[in-house]
């Protein structure tokens, strides 16, 4: 029985008669961090959402640790995009993180002090200990992202699926996320992120999946990010300048300041 954290076979997703994902085939290796990159509209978020059953797929198979999602939900944590919620909602950072514990608390039972303490611990892990009681609209974008991360942390899952966690965040949050990813890996966990920035992908992640409706290539970052593969993924959109930048970002390449 396969124990890969995530295996996707022939996933097809259509939206209003337009194909968004075409025969996507990929596997995620355990204990590593993987980035899913591709041009806008390439289906990156769709891949994540379809794998999680949030949007319907036309066909295909998705297995988490060899099982369908509903059998292993407690082992999978999802960090959605920030835009997916209304940050005006009357809850505090602590309340949001505690939501990661709801499943463990169970139906109808209340959130107790010890759960709130656990939430505070998770918040401390992402550097937001002082902000636990703040209403979420009073947090900056990066802080909100970290609240989402703390929520996933609180779940104590094995596989973390994150949708653009690095989008529009400040340096401190970026650092916090990277530290978190390293820690999760150290504890034996697996991290998969939809990532938008070619510039940083080789630096932040072990493995890369290049996606443009189909999976163009997957594997270790240093092997996958070839000009050839990038051309296939980004097509005409990748300019010479971008290529030069990506070249430089590969580990081992000389860095400019």
């Amino acid at each position: 029985m396969s124990t890969l954290p995530l295996e996707i076979r022939s996933l097809n997703v259509a939206y209003h008669r337009k194909m968004v994902l075409w025969d996507a085939d990929l596997s995620i290796r355990p204990g590593r961090s993987t980035a899913i990159v591709g041009p806008n509209g390439a289906g990156k978020s769709t891949l994540l959402k379809a794998a999680l059953g949030l949007i319907p797929a036309a066909s295909g198979e998705v297995l988490f640790y060899g099982e369908p999602l509903k059998k292993v939900r407690s082992r999978v944590a999802y960090v959605p995009q920030r835009e997916s919620v209304d940050w005006d909602f009357p809850v505090s950072a602590r309340d949001v993180v505690a939501m990661g514990l709801y499943k463990k608390i169970g139906w109808c039972l209340p959130v107790r002090a010890r759960h709130r303490r656990m939430a505070d611990e998770a918040l401390a892990d992402v550097g937001l200990a002082d902000f636990a009681g703040r209403q979420i609209s009073q947090l900056s974008g990066g802080q909100q992202q970290r609240v989402f991360l703390a929520r996933a942390l609180a779940q104590k899952a094995d596989l973390h699926l994150m949708d653009e966690p690095f989008a529009s965040v400040d340096a401190a949050t970026e650092q916090a996320i990277l530290t978190l990813i390293e820690r999760l890996k150290l504890e034996g966990g697996t991290v998969v992120c939809v990532h938008h920035d070619l510039d940083t992908v080789a630096e932040y992640f072990d493995d890369v999946i290049l996606l443009n409706m189909r999976v163009v290539a997957q594997g270790p970052a240093s092997e996958v990010l070839t000009p050839e593969n990038l051309r296939k993924t980004y097509g005409a959109r990748l300019t010479l300048l971008d290529e030069a930048v990506v070249d430089l970002s590969r580990p081992g390449a000389p860095r400019e300041s």
Binding site: K49, L52, G53, L54, L69, K70, R73, S74, V76, Y78, P80, S84, V85, D86, F89, V91, D95, V96, M99, G100, Y102, K103, I105, W107, C108, P110, V111, R151, Q155
Partner: peptide
């Protein structure tokens, strides 16, 4: 069902993935 409704209203997709 206070916490369940809260989660439903705040973040439906997270709620769904959590089962």
């Amino acid at each position: 069902l206070f916490k369940e409704f809260t989660l439903l209203c705040f973040d439906e997709s997270y709620a769904q993935t959590a089962g």
